[in-house]
């Protein structure tokens, strides 16, 4: 008799936990594969409620590195892709996974470093010179090392300096193999220079004595693009709802929403869909 009670209780608990509960919301939702920089900066929390209210479509953001976001979308696990690595995005469309790519906005990369500035690069606006100096002095530099959009941009800049960072990896050049936030946490703890997008940096909460050392070089331009995943290639894609989101974010209204997002009075992203 004891046993029946126990089993009954377990079963009831199982039902209560498994089959009920909140958050299994409406069917009108899309999944956006995006990057940690857009999520960690708080941009989505600012603009998505405006879209959701107007359209009635819930936007579920999966924020991972650009590389992983593109792979997930190529598996059909997402309706919209919003990332920042133009060549990879164009390949994604060329391979038939995406319908078309649109510019959405840009921000810029900066190189942050400790107040002591061991490589003496503070205030430089020529990024290639600054990186070469860091390599010369073998001042520690923390890289994402995760094939993300930021990582790819950083490698392109190193190429222009002619420094073989792969050879220095594990020495002064340190690959964390993790996201932007984790790399900033690691880099600031080891006194290393870090290249980061400005949006993540402004909203980052663990700056310590770090400041922006290198900024303003046009080479550090960071363009975001949006792509509707192809329903032809991936039949489960919610093309109509996804298209509404793409249309909205490159519309005047969506662009204004992006421009209106500020932290401490600083604008983080600059809409450029119309350009």
């Amino acid at each position: 008799m004891e046993r029946r009670n126990f089993l009954g209780w377990s079963a009831a608990l199982g039902l209560a936990l498994g089959l009920s509960g909140p958050a299994m919301a409406q069917d009108d939702f899309i999944v956006v594969q995006s990057t940690t920089s857009t999520q960690n900066s708080g941009l989505f929390e600012h603009i998505l409620p405006m879209f959701e209210e107007q359209s009635g479509i819930e936007v579920r953001v999966v924020a991972v590195g650009t590389g992983q976001a593109i792979k997930n979308a190529a598996n059909g696990d997402g309706d919209v892709l919003l990332v920042h690595a133009k060549p990879s995005e164009e390949k994604f469309v060329a391979d038939g996974h995406g319908v078309a790519r649109f510019d959405v906005m840009y921000n810029d990369f900066v190189i942050v470093g400790p107040a002591s500035d061991p490589a003496g690069v503070a205030g430089t606006s020529d990024v290639v010179t600054a990186l070469a100096k860091i390599a010369d002095t073998e001042a520690p530099f923390a890289s994402r090392g995760d094939d993300s959009g930021t990582h790819k941009a950083e490698l392109r800049l190193w190429e222009q300096t002619g420094v073989d960072v792969a050879a220095a990896s594990g020495n002064w050049y340190r690959e964390t193999g993790s996201g932007m936030g984790a790399t900033l946490n690691t880099g600031t703890a080891m006194g290393a220079y870090v290249m980061t997008d400005r949006a993540t940096w402004i909203s980052f909460g663990n700056k310590g004595d770090y400041t922006v050392a290198v900024e303003g070089d046009p080479k550090m331009f960071n363009q975001y693009g949006v792509i509707l995943v192809s329903q032809e290639k991936h039949p489960n894609v919610k093309a109509e709802l996804g298209q509404q989101f793409v249309d909205w974010i490159i519309s005047e209204e969506g662009q204004a929403a992006i421009a209106s997002y500020k932290i401490d009075g600083q604008q983080l992203f600059f809409p450029n869909a119309g350009d």
Partner: peptide, 21 residues
């Protein structure tokens, strides 16, 4: 996917807040 209000749990929130510094 750590989706806000859908699949965000204690541990993924901790990971997210850590990455935000």
């Amino acid at each position: 996917g750590n989706i806000n209000h859908v699949t965000r749990v204690m541990t993924t929130t901790i990971a997210l807040e850590t990455s935000k510094g």
